[in-house]
Every structure is written in structure tokens, then in C-alpha cells.
Amino acid sequence: MNVSQGKVMTLEQAIATYVTDGCHISIGGFTVNRNPMAAVYEIMRQRKKNLHCYAHSNGTGVDELIGGGCISRLEIAYGGNGKAAPTCIRFKSAIQRGEILFEDYSNYHMSLRFHAGAMGVPFINTLSGLGTDILEKWGFSRELRAMDPKLPDKKIEIIDNPFGNWGGATKVVLVPAINPDVTIIHVQKADKHGTCRIEGLNFADIDQAKASKHVIVTCEEIVDSEELREKPEYNQIPFIHVSAVVHVPYGAYPSACFNCYDYDPIYLKQLSTFAKDDKLYKEYLETFVYGVKDHPGLLTLVGKEQLKMISADKRTGYATGLDRR
């Protein structure tokens, strides 16, 4: 590692290096907030294929990756994106047309699975989902699981509580650990070695990052290590987990980034309209994704006025009074 440069590279380089066809991937954020959208669009531009994606409720990012044809297998808890798309539109159509293999979990299941992966244990137990079809219906068959060494043999398992009734439970559900090949998160601040400071909710980003073999961090700002180390208790991810650091202002756009900018209701609403129609969506991709060189290119298309509308108010961290109808 070049110590003076740290792990800083361009987004194009980072995606080309760490996101490979068929790799197992997860992205940070939750529905309309802090999705690593610049990275998502770069993955689409580089036409990555057959990704195996692990998602809890990563709305905008996962839906675009599906729409771009990058994902062939999906383990997911929630495909929804707030008001603009109560059910993510490309997710919905990909499943209804049988275009991707998918398997359902709950948000807690997925969070626990990343947590188990981060801790290096094979599974973790919970009481969530007993009696439901989430436990009964497997998206990936036993045959597929047996053939693929990167999949656990079972989706989920129920066992009797080995400690009797300790903790007031007779049975527990075991969910298998996830260790993605690569996780991409977008944060407010990072240093050049990858230490991250997330402002606002962290969702499941920390465990997703720590469970992953490689981590790409995109950030609003690259700051001096000394600045982050003045208050280490505010940093959530130390540099030892991180492979690449990329400076991408507005890197979560059109999703929100607390204290920096809000989600863009205009973009998200238009996207929903386009996504409902294959032809319009194709045109949208040609213009807004493949038609631009990089994320700054997309931001130029969107225009300064629209970005100004979503700029965050200093007191609240979001765009106060933003027209969200």
C-alpha cells in the first residue's frame, strides 16, 4: 500500500477492481437514504452481470441494479422505496417475469446475518418468523445450494432451545452468516485509509462492511485522519476493514445523505414513472446512466437548481420545507 495516497482511487477503478461478474455484493443505506448511488450507477455503466445481492431494505440502489440487469440472485427483506415506489418497480417486474432468483427474509434476519458474518460465526439465532412462510418457502433449492459452495446448505433452520426454556423460548430460528465479496457504503466523512464517520442512522452499514471481504467507501468528504481521531468514539468503521476510498460529493444522490442533502423527490418520482414502462426505462438508462461519463455528469444533467432545492438545512440535517408531494 502506498501510505501517502492511502486507499484513495477513482470510482471507475474501485468498481473495476472489486466488483466482478458473479460476485456476492451488498450495498449500504436504507430505502431513500445513503444508498451508494454513484457506485451503483458506475456498476451499471461497467455492465457488471450475475451479481448475487444481499439486501435488507436498500431501496433505490438495489432497484436500479436490478433494472440495469446486473443482479441475477437476490436475498432480500424489503423491496420498497418510500412514497415514490411502495413496491420497487423493477424489482416487482423482475420477479413477476421470473428474471431473477430471489429469496425472502425479514429485516432483522438480514441484519443478524451480516452481524454473524462480521463476528465470524456460522449462524445466529432469533425468534423472528416462527410459523411464517419466510421459514417455509425457499427461493434457492437444496440442489442449487448443494452445487454452490458460496451458499449455505439451508435457507434457515429451526431447533429446540438447547438450553431448555432458558430465556423463555422453546425453539429458535437459526439464520446463516453472510460474508459478501464486496460491500459498498456511502458516508459523510472518511480519511484516506478508510476510517469512516457516519452521521445519523447507520442502518446495518457497519456489520455489512465488517462482514465483507472488500469494502468500497464513497464519501462526501475526505478529511485528515487527525480530524477523525480527535473524536474516535464518533467513528464507526476503522480503516482495517476498507479496501478503497473514493471521494464522491453527492454520492448518495438521488437518495439522501443526512446533514448534506435530502432525497430528490422530483428525480425519484420521475424514475418511478420511467420504471413502470420498459421503453421509457430504457431511454432513462441511456440518458441518465449510460449517457453520462460519471456521477458529476449525472449531477450536471440534473442541474444546480434541483440540487439547491435538496441542500440540507444546518439545524435539521434535511431540506426543511422541501416540496415532497
Partner: peptide, 12 residues
Amino acid sequence: KIRFSGSGGACD
């Protein structure tokens, strides 16, 4: 026939 969002945290 119709796919919805899925559990999210509802099952939990």
C-alpha cells in the same frame, strides 16, 4: 401474479 415489497421489519 403480483409481487409486493415483502416483510421488511413487519415479520419481526
